[in-house]
């Protein structure tokens, strides 16, 4: 491990089998994220009636109240950016496990880094938890399949982030640099 002498930030860390591991974990996260989008997150039962909520319905709801700017922010942070992050990582990493680099890999990897801080799956999951508690005295609320899947996405996505060795990926997909000053 290599860290900055001045502020202590980690600069470089060896991560074993980084590329296949990150690819596998990201693939798992992506598949689970598809499950999240196909099933209800929360199911509310009152009397004989049931109301459910999916991720996309939740994101679009505030449009009914004319708050489109909020819709855009929620849609991007809870759905578009996480999905895009997993997709571009897979596009770069899966071919790399076979030693291949697809066209646009540099742009893809840049994009993955750019959208990563804006994906907020963990925060969304906390929101689901708070919603269950808040509604508990009004009605029966149960977390749906998507809520558990979202927990899985969070675990696998975080593990993928920990396994990723940026320096190694950049060395494989970037233009070859003759004199490495720090790698």
């Amino acid at each position: 491990m290599l860290s900055c002498r001045r502020c202590g930030a980690v600069l470089l860390q060896n991560r074993p089998d980084s590329i296949p591991r990150t690819a596998a974990l990201t693939l798992g996260a992506f598949i689970l994220f598809a499950v999240v989008n196909g099933f209800p997150l929360l199911i509310l039962k009152i009397g004989g009636r049931e109301t459910s909520l999916t991720l996309i319905e939740g994101a679009l709801e505030l449009g009914n109240h004319g708050m489109w700017e909020v819709v855009i922010v929620v849609l991007l942070t809870s759905l578009v950016f996480p999905a895009l992050h997993f997709l571009v990582l897979l596009y770069v990493l899966l071919p790399l496990t076979l030693g291949r680099v697809l066209p646009g890999a540099i742009m893809g990897f840049k994009m993955a880094d750019m959208v990563a801080p804006w994906g907020m799956i963990g925060v969304y999951l906390l929101g689901v938890l708070v919603a269950v508690v808040k509604l508990a005295d009004l009605a029966t609320v149960v977390p749906g399949v998507a809520a558990y899947a979202l927990g899985g996405v969070l675990v696998l996505g975080t593990a993928a982030g920990r396994a990723l060795n940026h320096e190694m990926v950049w060395n494989r997909i970037g233009k070859s640099v003759s004199c490495h000053l720090l790698t």
Partner: peptide, 18 residues
């Protein structure tokens, strides 16, 4: 980014209870 939890919460509550 954890402050976003309030925004997500409102969207969920408004969708479920309407």
């Amino acid at each position: 980014h954890w402050s976003m939890v309030d925004i997500f919460l409102v969207t969920m509550l408004a969708t479920l209870v309407k």
